[in-house]
Design a protein around this nucleic acid. Structure first.
Length: 407
RNA sequence: GCGUCGGUGGCAGAGUGGUCAAAUGCAGCGGACUGUAAAUCCGCCGGGCGUAGCCCUACGGGGGUUCAAAUCCCUCCCGGCGCA
């Protein structure tokens, strides 16, 4: 009855890695896969024709952004996010939970999903605009949901698990996420626990709210999100609780310290049911993280890194990342990256791209975005192929050695 | 030729006696970026060094006044404009 299914095609002995096929109403994703981030119903700088050409399988939009602009109604009128943006493949929407963090605790503090040496105050405060502003935040959390001011015009809004579901139903993506709280990596254990437990209650409400909408529940798959921050025992507890709910798949969210991402995934994925898909939210800047994720049983990833790095001048190449704005590339007429297979990489020179970036020509950002995203598509495609023919370990060794150097 | 205004760091352009190695922007150099408030943000940016500090040389050239000059005076050079 549901148009959603996940089939494991191959596994790699001695690891939790698997190659699979994740089927949705709008197409099948061959996993492991990198999902392109298209927050505002656009993968910045790239047309959907380009996305198809470079092998993008699915796009992930964001509830928060699309709710604010153009509004979920407009998207619904267009037939959902896919039709709206002229993307015929599978789509995901994030629940807006990440914005609870990025506009809340993380606001203006320069902290991100990974641990930094920044101190954050995580006090729970009843919402009012003045208070929020005095705390330097655009979002304030309470048990029922999150109140926030729009970053566009300062107007007041409120998300609850039910509201997030309602919006995501209207946006109509094939895979949607439960409303969660992504905590700051600097939050202490007591807060992580409190936030995690709240996220669990929100997960239950999201699920209930989703099932109640029979029509949406048939067309859209709902993924629950495991939290727990950087504390192993909380991660485990969260995985157990979320795994115990009737979700179609799982998202692994929240913050990690760089060093224990690996360990967290290892724990979480032994607890999550093997037969359901797992999406690692927001990870995929470093190629080695993708190999690690796959090895620990992650099926899909999403990350803004390929396109953001591209726009800011950092390009992936088979020999590591390069900063195209560095002086040395001004006169480097060699091709950007002949080895990865990217059209851009084997067509345009570093000197030309350096020129486009220096002169702020928009083509620079476009070509760089295409290249970086292709790089990730290619990486995941090769990883999948290596799982299918059993050469995963060899491929990882070969790729990482070339990418990071011998060191 | 006379008059007048002006000559400041790579460029543009503030400053018009001390808090000026000199605002700001651009350019330059480097860095960051992980469920996108990001075509963004952060450093450095006269020279040298042990770079939260110290030393040297500096505001067209030269000479003065002053405890102190990018800032005032004289002179020369250069440029814009006006008049011959």
């Amino acid at each position: 009855m549901s148009s959603f299914s996940f089939e494991i095609v191959e596994t790699l002995h001695g690891t939790r890695a698997r190659a699979g096929e994740l089927s949705t109403a709008r197409g099948t994703i061959k996993t492991p896969a990198f999902i392109a981030v298209g927050t505002k119903a656009t993968v910045k700088g790239l047309s959907t024709e380009t996305l198809s050409r470079i092998g993008v399988q699915a796009v992930l939009g964001n509830t928060y952004h699309l709710y604010l602009e153009p509004g979920e109604k407009v998207v619904a009128e267009a037939g959902g996010i896919g039709s709206f943006m002229n993307w015929s493949g599978p789509t995901f929407t994030d629940s807006g939970g990440f914005q609870v963090f990025s506009l809340g605790a993380g606001f203006g503090k320069g902290i991100n999903k990974f641990e930094r040496d920044v101190d954050a105050d995580e006090a729970l405060v009843p919402y009012n605009k003045e208070l929020a502003q005095s705390h330097g935040k655009l979002a304030i959390i309470d048990e029922d949901g999150v109140s926030f001011t729009s970053h566009l015009d300062g107007s007041l809004h409120r998300f609850t698990p039910e509201r997030s579901m309602e919006i995501q139903h209207a946006l109509g993506a094939d895979i949607i996420f439960a409303f969660d709280e992504c905590t700051s990596p600097t939050a202490d254990e007591a807060y992580q626990k409190e936030a995690m437990e709240r996220t669990h209650r929100w997960a239950k409400r999201s699920l209930l709210s989703h099932k109640r909408n029979i029509d949406s529940a048939r067309r859209q798959a709902l993924f629950g999100i495991v939290q727990g921050g950087r504390f192993a025992h909380l991660r485990e507890e969260s995985a157990k609780v979320i795994a115990g709910m009737d979700f179609d798949g799982f998202g692994i969210g929240g913050s990690f310290s760089k060093k224990d991402l690996d360990a967290s995934l290892a724990r979480v994925n032994t607890i999550l049911p093997m037969e359901k898909p797992r999406h690692l939210l927001g990870i995929g800047s470093e190629p080695r993280d993708l190999f690690d994720g796959v090895e620990h049983g992650i099926d899909t990833f999403d990350c803004v890194a390929p396109t953001r790095l591209a726009r800011t001048g950092t390009l992936y190449t088979a020999r590591g990342e390069i900063h195209i704005l560095n002086a040395r590339y001004r006169t480097d007429h060699t091709l950007l990256d002949e080895e990865t297979g990217s059209e851009v990489g084997k067509t345009y020179s570093k000197a030309y791209l350096a020129h486009l970036f220096r002169s702020r020509e928009m083509l620079g950002a476009v070509l760089a975005s295409e290249h970086n995203l292709f790089f990730m598509m290619q990486l995941l495609a090769r990883i999948r192929a290596s799982l299918l023919d059993g050469t995963f370990r060899e491929y990882r060794q070969e790729f990482l050695t070339k990418y990071y150097g011998k060191a």
